[in-house]
């Protein structure tokens, strides 16, 4: 059977890995979206998304054209010793799975319950996707899914087979 879903490999995003106590980070990183209220939640501000992906750990995503602006604003080199900010834009490959059967395709590779009652618009999580560690969040009409960039071609192949 085939699925009514569209698979896109997205261009690189600007990504920043933020670690440390939330209070210290929010004091330093003033221009980010508001810090999400709970674990595995995200917030938006303009084109930027801030994801709470682990204890004392957040991931900031924005369009690549804003990377330099974020580098200047977050100023990792000058950050206080109790926080860590690292630009990781080129480490992740994002796929966008959209369409009526997007969640069916996701369920082939991902064990996480992605029903909207459990995984809402403000949800984000690292989980497993076709055996790889992957970041999963919702987008319009589907899901965005990021894997470590060296697994990109393999995941593309899995997705092609799944939707063939």
């Amino acid at each position: 059977m085939t699925y009514d879903a569209k698979i896109d490999r997205l261009p690189i995003f600007a990504l920043f890995d933020l670690k440390g106590p939330q209070e210290a980070l929010s004091k330093w990183a003033k221009d980010t979206p508001a810090f999400p209220k709970g674990p595995n939640k995200l917030t938006h501000k303009a084109s930027a998304t801030l994801c709470h992906i682990g204890p004392r750990r957040w991931l900031l995503r924005d369009d690549l054209e804003n990377e330099a602006t974020w580098s200047a604003s977050l100023n990792p080199e000058e950050a206080p010793a109790d926080i860590s900010i690292v630009r990781v834009s080129d480490t992740q490959t994002f796929f966008r799975i959209t369409g009526p059967d997007a969640s069916e395709v996701m369920s082939i590779g991902c064990t996480l319950d992605l029903h909207p009652a459990v995984f809402a618009d403000d949800a984000v999580s690292y989980t497993e996707f076709f055996g790889c560690k992957a970041l999963v969040l919702r987008c319009e009409h589907g899901f965005d899914c990021a894997v470590e960039q060296s697994f990109g071609n393999m995941i593309k192949d899995f997705l092609n087979r799944a939707t063939a």
Binding site: G54, R57, S125, C132
Partner: peptide, 9 residues
């Protein structure tokens, strides 16, 4: 146990 493919806890 290590939540290696999740949050790292």
């Amino acid at each position: 146990w290590w939540h290696v493919k999740g949050c790292g806890t």
